[in-house]
Design a protein around this nucleic acid. Structure first.
Lengths: 224, 224
DNA sequence: ATTATATGTGTAAAATATACACAAATATAA
DNA sequence: TTATATTTGTGTATATTTTACACATATAAT
């Protein structure tokens, strides 16, 4: 059939661990860019939709199963792949730390987390894709509480605060931030405390999904 | 080559004329959905990038040349096209009224503007695409002054106000709205007045693109 | 026991958003 | 030509939201 084009999906999956934002990359097993680092991804099959394709590729290449996944942008410039015309639908994902163990396989030699401040050279136009994904992450986090997707089920409030200062790359006033988040009522304070190293032990919080979806439904926007 | 998929582009182009928001549709010449209304669009060629493809299809099918065009979303569900697996990259465009004359041709019997409140039945999953485009339009207009893309070069302030009330489907306080827009300094007041029908003649304004790009660069957000 | 470190909490000032009404300039109708 | 209807144009007072800011408490390390 005429007018067919090679279609791929690529995933930019962000993770967060104790003050560092990292992104999941795979080392390529085959040409082009053999042994180079790239975003996980691959060709879309005839009988799967786009999101299935991303999840399949992520699972095959890294062992990851991502809960939060949204479409980012579609990259279709000529010459972005040396194999010829390839259009790629990029996705944007967030995972909790320790949500899975990395396991390489099929197309990828190995999968690894990279701090977004210390990235290796990337294959294809993946540097550009990653840049757009980081902008989306920074933009989105200011008006939707997706930050929780990056934290453990139970977390001290300071984790959330540190996540935001890291992502937004600026200081946040602890009291004002807490006032704002508390006002949204998306956090449940647990009867549990955790003490990490010195300092006063912190109450643990968990994320109230029900309330979150209610807010989303009402179109309520928050602004950090 | 394996793994190739049919790739199309579709355009949701909005226009605005004296209180009505309309969208550009074409009547299909061929099966599937022969004689049905659809978004302008078509197959992406091997040697053109996505934006070129949309502009080409728009030009071929409607004669339109769109200034403001951004990617909306990529639709890749199975079964969205009876011809088989077709993935479509949808674009979102805005045009000034009278920017061009509609001229049908190649694939389309004719092109027409439809008030978004009186839409015909649409081919494929174009209803869904249009719905997402309308949400994008309503969302975007509250934090980026893209409304100007829909107005003539010179316009009375009341046009802008009416556009916003129409798009957001709610009343806007004229004084407060003007305060906000004036504060952005994206409008230049001209030494010209226009009088349409009865009532006091209105000053004409024009949109200061330089200032607009400066604001964008600074990441300044406005909120209606 | 002392010191260092992280958590937890409230209030006052500043900035922003909202509510609100009448005069001026024109077209139309009487 | 006068009166009436219609649209534009403008400021201030109040409410709401955001920001700035400091010290007591609970623990670990020395």
């Amino acid at each position: 059939m005429k007018n067919k084009i090679q279609l791929t999906v690529d995933a930019v999956v962000f993770g967060y661990d104790s003050g560092n934002i990292s992104v999941l990359l795979v080392k390529r097993k085959y040409e082009p860019f053999k042994d180079g680092w790239a975003l996980p991804g691959g060709f879309v099959l005839e009988n799967e939709n786009l999101e299935q394709a991303v999840q399949r590729e992520l699972s095959e290449e890294t062992g990851a199963k991502i809960n939060y996944l949204e479409q980012l942008y579609t990259f279709g410039d000529l010459g972005r792949d040396p194999r010829g015309r390839v259009v790629s639908v990029a996705y944007f994902g967030l995972v909790k730390p320790n949500a899975f163990k990395l396991t390489a396989s099929t197309d990828a030699k190995k999968a690894e987390w990279f701090d977004i401040k210390r990235l290796p050279k990337l294959a294809f136009d993946h540097k550009k894709i990653l840049k757009i994904a980081i902008e989306r992450l920074q933009g989105k986090i200011t008006y939707e509480p997706i930050g929780f997707e990056l934290l453990d089920k139970k977390f001290p409030f300071s984790d959330l605060e540190k996540l935001y200062t890291t992502l937004l790359d600026r200081e946040i006033d602890r009291r004002n931030f807490k006032k704002k988040i508390t006002g949204l009522k998306v956090l449940d304070e647990l009867d549990e405390k955790v003490s990490i190293g010195r300092g006063r032990p912190a109450s643990l919080f968990s994320f109230n999904k029900k309330r979150y979806f209610q807010l989303k439904k009402e179109g309520i926007i928050f602004e950090i």
